[in-house]
Amino acid sequence: MTESSDGAPRSAAADRASGAPGELCSPGADAGEKPILELRHVDKSFGPVQALSQVSLQVARGQATGLLGDNGAGKTVMIKTVSGMWPPDSGEILWNGRPIHIHTPRDAAALGITTVYQDLALCDNLDIVQNMFLGREALRLGSLDEVTMERAARRTLESLAVTTVRSIRQPVSSLSGGQRQSVAVARAVMIESKLVIMDEPTAALGVAQTRVVLDLIRRLVGQGVSVLMVSHNLNDVFAVADRLAILHLGHLVATGPASEFDPQVAVDFMTTGRSARARPGIAAPREA
């Protein structure tokens, strides 16, 4: 594998693409500003199964990047790699342009990467405030400062427009799926995450709750947080993503501004790894 000479021009092409005419997204990924997270030639295999193969992906700063792929395309492996659960076999991960090594979830957390998992990782028996501050409780004279925590939690929830939870002192077990997602996201905001990775955030939700969560993701981006949203639901991804990246059988087959894709092109890439209808704004490294 030719490591450097092969990959660098491609990512440059992707950068240029994001600044293509007709693109309405906020400036951020282009014009010299480095992507917040970049993967270069990342490989990950489990025994004979090559889960990720030479994946080079840029996650734009302050934008929502949608990572699409069919089941088994390697989406989950990718986010577990970035979140420190499964370090890559080879390749580089850059954070703000600097090479880093993420070996444990704690490494990722220290950088400001928060992953909101499908199973949510909330404690059902604790209330909303307790969950949002879990592991980072405010103290006053050595004991828990519930008043300060409750006020800060309420402020954060209000800033995300999560206001219909009647009491933020109700246990998480009494919340609906959308509310639970909201709490998990609010927790990520609370701890001042730079990059929030969301694993299938709408998979278990009804129509109304899905909309709540998608709104929430947009507000998150509005607050300057970068988001990597992993999903196989095209509607949801197109509703929020500024940029798209599509995985197919462990290969990154297409990247580009969301406006350059339409659902049919995305489905082509997701199912076959190529698309005859792709517009020039889409970088398709495998076809180069």
Binding site: A161, R218, R219, G224
Partner: peptide, 9 residues
């Protein structure tokens, strides 16, 4: 910490 007005979509 919420610099911008939350923008609904």
């Amino acid at each position: 910490e919420a610099g911008a007005e939350p923008r609904p979509t």
